[in-house]
Amino acid sequence: MTTGPGTTTTGPGAAPAPPAPARRFAVPGRIAVSQQVATAWQTATLTGIRRETPHAATFRLAVPHWAGHLPGQHLMLRLTAADGYVAQRHYSIASAPDDSGHIELTLDRVPDGEVSGWFHTAARPGDTVEVRGPLSGFFAWPGDRPALLLGAGSGVVPLMSMVRHHRARGLSVPLRMLVSARSSEELIYARELGAETTAVFTRSAPAGTPVGRMAAAHVAPLLAEAPAHGWEAYVCGSNGFAEHASRLLVAAGQPVDRIRIERFG
């Protein structure tokens, strides 16, 4: 199993510069990432804000020199305060790859969070931040293999990039998603979810829907209907969820070396 990034706070880096085009290719277990792209900071301008849940919102950024990304990749975002203090965070990219020159990030407001707090309380269209990426090939999905996606809370963000990519390209490769949220009100992207998605609610649920944690009864049927060559499983969420979901997958018969994990917390 492979795991994804954490969070950092650090000092200023190099001045923004347009990166060279990304070079990437699919090999078992990872996608190659251009180091020049991954290390070059560039300016991104906030162009729109869309509320997803009471605690989560999507922020649309114009990045003129964005080199493109694959679903599941993330970026590093940098904010610099007037006094020179710098905060950096890793954020998954929510949007599907396209040529619009924009990317979207969906952020939960974290209690006492410096960066998420700024986005949710102070950020306005026209504000600028710095970004570098895309980063990491471990969690990327090129769209060339059947994908089974398991997420909880804001862990659905990189998975939704995969779903959007699947829809936008009209891909025929099988894709299924199982997501967990505390309630229907806190289910991120609820308006966009379709037949490929099953939702599990842990605290309150719509009438007729059971309440409870993601369990073997949710995962086993998905493994039973796996396509001929099996699933590539992508798991994203908190440390606790990642461990729980990966154990469910293994117990249901998913090969350990075909589970990719992106965790936070």
Rank of each mutant, 00 (worst) to 15 (best):
G6W: 01
T8D: 03
T9K: 00
G11S: 15
G11E: 15
G11F: 12
P12T: 04
P16L: 09
P16K: 00
A17C: 14
A17R: 15
P19F: 02
A20Q: 09
A20L: 10
P21A: 11
P21G: 08
A22F: 13
R23G: 11
R24L: 15
R30I: 15
V37F: 11
W41E: 01
T43Q: 11
A44K: 02
L46N: 04
T47H: 10
H55S: 14
T58G: 13
T58S: 15
L61Y: 09
A62V: 10
V63A: 03
P64S: 01
W66Y: 05
A67Y: 01
L70N: 00
P71V: 03
L75V: 09
M76F: 09
L77G: 00
T80Q: 14
A82T: 09
D83T: 06
D83G: 04
G84H: 07
Y85H: 13
Q88L: 06
H90L: 06
P97D: 07
D98N: 11
S100A: 11
E104Q: 10
R109N: 13
V110I: 14
V110D: 11
P111T: 00
P111C: 12
D112M: 13
D112K: 13
E114P: 11
E114A: 13
W118E: 10
T121W: 11
A122D: 14
R124H: 14
V129N: 00
R132S: 00
L135T: 02
L135M: 14
S136T: 14
F139M: 12
W141Y: 03
P142V: 12
A147T: 07
L148T: 01
L148K: 05
L150N: 02
G151F: 10
G155N: 05
G155T: 06
G155K: 06
M162L: 06
V163H: 04
H165K: 07
R167Q: 03
A168E: 07
G170R: 06
S172K: 10
P174C: 01
R176Y: 04
V179C: 02
R182I: 04
S183Q: 02
S184Y: 02
E185G: 11
E185Y: 11
E185S: 14
E186V: 08
E186H: 15
I188Q: 02
Y189W: 03
A190Q: 13
R191P: 05
T197V: 08
A199M: 09
V200Y: 03
G208P: 13
M214Q: 03
A216I: 01
A220L: 12
L222C: 12
A226Q: 09
G230K: 06
A233H: 03
V235Y: 06
V235W: 02
S238H: 06
N239V: 07
G240Y: 07
A242N: 15
E243C: 05
E243T: 11
H244D: 12
A245G: 06
A252C: 12
P255I: 04
R263I: 05
F264A: 00
